[in-house]
């Protein structure tokens, strides 16, 4: 395709590593560095950020003049959209809704990540997961979660 071969994946990796190093380095600025003899909280992270930046730079530079041997491939947008919010949702609702409804909705949301999962089987699956987990964790092990929280009590 392009005239000069370059490894797009490693370019991205290098840039990402340097960005991460930048973030940590930037966050370190408020911390006291100290001396090598009496190190402050910022000393070790500062050194590490520097090393990470250098490594990122090496990855970035070496990416030029080389073919990308494994293309980037598809991105699981649907997965990202439904899998990642599932634990967040659980965390936000487990106290308010209680263990049972929060878990049911969490499983249901996660199930949406697959195109093969139809709504009715998803409901059945979420229900089964909820019933079994409630039996195991709440009744069996007595975990201190309220089964139904204040938001669903009337």
């Amino acid at each position: 395709m392009s005239t000069k071969p370059k490894d797009g994946t490693d370019i991205a990796a290098g840039l990402l590593l340097m960005a991460a190093a930048g973030f940590f380095g930037w966050q370190t600025r408020a911390l006291e560095i100290g001396t090598s003899l009496r190190m402050g909280p910022g000393y070790f992270p500062m050194v590490l950020s520097g090393v990470l930046f250098l490594l990122g730079l090496v990855v970035f530079l070496r990416a030029f003049g080389r073919e990308d041997d494994e293309p980037f491939g598809k991105i699981a947008w649907r997965g990202i959209l439904f899998i990642l919010p599932a634990p967040i949702f659980f965390g936000l609702t487990v106290r308010g809704l209680g263990f049972v409804p929060a878990l049911f909705l969490t499983s249901f949301i996660a199930a949406q990540a697959s195109v093969r999962m139809r709504p009715v089987p998803a409901l059945i699956l979420a229900l089964a997961v909820t019933i079994l987990s409630t039996l195991i964790f709440s009744y069996g092990l007595g975990l201190p979660f309220r089964r139904f929280g204040p938001w669903v009590q009337f």
């Binding site: 969490t106 996660a110 999962m117």
Partner: peptide, 8 residues
């Protein structure tokens, strides 16, 4: 989905 529920 079961994995996600359990790890939550």
């Amino acid at each position: 989905p079961i994995i996600m529920a359990m790890c939550s």
